[in-house]
């Protein structure tokens, strides 16, 4: 693991020298600080508005950086030909890739910590004016939202690394973006799949039963489903199952509305941190394993 950490350290040092990152960070901080002004534009829900802007900025700018830095991670090494010196050394490719992943994640988390610190100081200072009675809880909930955002970043970076291990940065960026979109719409895609089944007589019950039951139902000639219905279902359900469900890492609603909405309702719309981790860790691991496999087969000639 020493080799992995050495590469991670190197990747981190390299990343923090990247000026684009600082420009984006400055933008992000400026955006977070707009809460100071924007709070005067609202007539109610001052705390909510400030938190919404801050949490959005931390999440979006974190994702932008993950995308920008992640897609060029392997390509830069190839472009500068430094990959040859690395692979000629006694270091496995999977170690190289894992080190890159950890280094980038460390960089991103450092940026998130900086943005979060600015955000928390801001809401702490503004609370002197707003006098939010639930301020302490607001801080805690915001921290939970930021933490789950970090888990989401880990998944996104894994995908960026996967795509950059076999394609050009533009293509990697596009594919990672598509994963983000598919992940954000994951539950909608699942509903679409359920709707296909529910559209047939007797499909209401089957719709919730999963992939195999759904396919068996559609293949039954009695239902009258065409091959196109089967393809649509296969595609939608497959996408919903395989692509990550980023809504599971979204605790922003909890952080914004915890003080006005019953906790039971919020529990319904927010997955617990442990559940999110139980899902994210093996998912990220499998994406990284796939990336390692593809990178291991890659010919650098």
């Amino acid at each position: 693991m020493d080799k992995v950490f050495a590469i991670a350290q190197n990747t981190f040092k390299e990343a923090i020298r990247n000026r684009v990152m600082y420009v984006i960070l400055v933008f992000a901080i400026l955006f977070i600080l707009t809460g100071v002004v924007v709070k005067d534009l609202t007539i109610a829900a001052h705390g909510l508005v400030i938190r919404a802007i801050g949490l959005w900025a931390i999440n979006v700018f974190g994702l932008i950086l993950a995308l920008l830095l992640g897609i060029g991670l392997v390509y830069t090494e190839l472009d500068k030909k430094t990959i040859y010196t690395i692979v000629s050394k006694p270091i496995d490719r999977w170690q190289f890739l894992l080190g890159k992943y950890l280094g980038l994640l460390l960089t991103l988390y450092l940026i998130v910590v900086v943005m979060s610190a600015v955000f928390l100081v801001e809401i702490h200072l503004l609370n002197r004016q707003i006098q939010d009675p639930h301020f302490g809880l607001a801080m805690l909930m915001s921290l939970k939202a930021i933490f789950l955002g970090c888990v989401e970043l880990a998944v996104v970076v894994a995908f960026a690394l996967l795509f950059s291990s076999f394609s050009s940065p533009v293509l990697s960026g596009f594919m990672t973006l598509m994963v983000i979109v598919a992940g954000r719409l994951n539950e909608d895609i699942e509903r679409f799949a359920q709707k296909i089944i529910a559209g047939f007589e007797g499909g209401g019950e089957v719709a919730k039963q999963g992939f195999l039951a759904g396919m068996a139902f559609l293949r039954d000639p009695a239902t009258g489903a065409t091959i196109f219905d089967q393809i649509k279902f296969l595609f939608a359900k497959g996408t919903a199952l395989v692509f990550p469900n980023f809504e599971l890492f979204n605790a922003r609603t909890l952080a914004l509305h915890f003080d006005t909405v019953d906790v039971n309702i919020l529990k319904m719309i927010t997955v617990s941190t442990s559940d999110a981790l139980i899902y994210a860790v093996p998912y990220t691991a499998s994406v990284l394993l796939l990336a390692m496999f593809l990178f291991g087969r890659r010919n650098f000639r």
Binding site: N186, L241, Y279, P282, L289
Partner: peptide, 13 residues
């Protein structure tokens, strides 16, 4: 890993 993640995903869905 992938099997477990997809299984969890299926449960959530």
């Amino acid at each position: 890993c992938a099997g477990f993640a997809i299984h969890r995903q299926a449960l959530y869905l």
